[in-house]
Design a protein around this nucleic acid. Structure first.
Lengths: 108, 108
DNA sequence: AAAAAAGATAGCCACTTGGCTAAGTATCTT
DNA sequence: AAGATACTTAGCCAAGTGGCTATCTTTTTT
């Protein structure tokens, strides 16, 4: 039962990788640009990138000698949805079934 | 610059720990009950719990020989907010400054 | 007072992670 | 054709993670 959420959360549990995501929300970028602000060796940075890509949070294509990376929206939505669902419950909101039940008992 | 988000995401990057969070949204519970559905030794499970508590996603007090665990809402909200912020940008929505700029250039 | 219940602590292990350097492979530029 | 650019690959390492068993300690229960 290894959920995709595992890899999503794991991929986001690192400041370097979150910074990459943040930058990519402004549009695709080549590896070099993404690497520039991070004070670490390129191979180290590439490991972060490939972890993001393995998780499916990011995709990339190579054009010439440059690799262009772009964000993948859907997974982040999934993570957000999981969190939202938990919040709905702990905030005491009713889920659909409970709403329906409440409605039915109202009209009786 | 080690953000709290690091530990939040890391703590949530495991199905056992997310299951605990899910269960706790329905209210506080003792360690035994939280452990029951998970097929692993208690000490192993306790490590997961203490990781959740170290991250601040959960708190607990001991009453007699039982430890009652309850969820902490604020951190999950923070995680959700970070994700929401990213989505706002990649969906092409404008942030406050940009809205302001747009407004100003409209009225000129 | 003894036994059972509920955790806590200690210590071991295989595997992953995040960092590095060194060296290789393409693809432009000059 | 040579040199510079932009990655890529390989291999090493220390620290962290998730799992286990065995052994306490502390409350209840009987």
């Amino acid at each position: 039962m290894t959920n995709y959420l595992d890899t999503y959360f794991a991929a986001l549990a690192d400041p370097t990788r979150r910074a990459v995501i943040e930058k990519l929300t402004n549009g695709p970028a080549p590896v070099k640009d993404l690497h520039a602000p991070h004070d670490m060796a390129l191979p180290t940075f590439l490991k972060h990138l490939s972890k993001l890509e393995a998780a499916g949070l990011v995709r990339s294509e190579k054009k010439g000698r440059v690799r262009i990376v772009h964000i993948e929206a859907a997974p982040l939505k999934e993570v957000e949805d999981w969190l939202g669902k938990q919040r709905d419950i702990w905030e005491g909101r009713l889920d659909r079934l409970e709403r329906l039940a409440a409605k039915l008992s109202d009209t009786k």
